Computed example of a mutant assay.
Amino acid sequence: MTEVALFETLAAANRRLAEALAQAGREPAAARLLAVSKTKPALMVREAYRLGQRDFGENYLQEALEKQETLADLPEIVWHFIGPLQSNKSRAVAEHFAWLHSLDREKLARRLDEQRPAHLPPLNVCLQVNISDETTKAGVSLDDLPALAEVVVALPRLRLRGLMAIPAPTEGREAQREPYARLRQALEELRQRFPQAPLDTLSMGMSDDLEAAVAEGATWVRLGTAIFGARPKTPRA
């Protein structure tokens, strides 16, 4: 992708988010764009940063760490880990990321808390909810969510910010909104239960359902191919 093309796609993504917020009657700054840069080269991330993007989401740990080293000169860049995380890889996320969007079990939470360096602020975390009850998808169930939240709220090196979900694909705006409405309600219930936690985040919505997610209160929307173009088909480890 050329610099001109990236300028155009990033601008289009920001316009789409702004229009969705306006249609939902929300403030212009109520949701932010998380640029999903997995499989894309550091040079492309650097150009998006030059164009004003600051938050980048990565799924593949080794690839992300290499980019972070290459782009260490960018003072305001913020790295989000958004993919499934194995417990044996938790230390690198604890040490090198500002956000984790996919926390879904107590063991992982406790490891991250122990491994987060004392000189860094607490790791911002979202609990991933399996909102559509899919057997092939990661995430805690809505029934088990309060118990996991109670554990995370008590861990001093983690800061529970909210919830994340990737619903099963569906057609039609109202059908898309339904699982996001349930996630929003779950967050509201956690706020009542844990008033001490800064529960201000709903990480939800991608290219196919951004408008539905924003209508239900998304604060982070995750866009990848809409900004950076198509990804290679070969899976990464």
Rank of each mutant, 00 (worst) to 15 (best):
L142H: 11
A149Q: 01
L120N: 15
L187C: 11
R111S: 12
A118Y: 15
P179L: 03
D143Y: 11
S102Q: 01
R111V: 07
A92C: 10
T135E: 09
G139N: 02
V151L: 01
L103D: 03
P169G: 06
H96P: 07
D104S: 09
S90P: 03
P179F: 09
V152C: 02
D73P: 08
A197E: 13
A94Y: 13
T136A: 15
S87N: 03
R111M: 09
L120E: 14
A149S: 02
L155Y: 14
S102I: 09
V78W: 08
L74M: 11
L103S: 04
P122R: 03
F97R: 02
A109W: 07
R105E: 07
E134Y: 13
E95K: 11
P167Y: 05
Q196N: 03
D73A: 09
A197K: 07
S132H: 04
A72Q: 12
E114F: 12
Q176A: 06
A98W: 05
F97Y: 09
L85G: 03
H80L: 04
E171L: 10
A138V: 01
E76V: 11
H96V: 10
L100I: 05
R161E: 09
E171N: 12
P169F: 09
W79L: 04
E134M: 10
N130D: 15
D144S: 04
Q185K: 14
Q86R: 05
V152W: 02
L199P: 00
F97Q: 02
E134H: 11
E188I: 06
A197F: 09
I131D: 03
L112T: 05
D73M: 05
L123P: 07
R177P: 08
L148N: 00
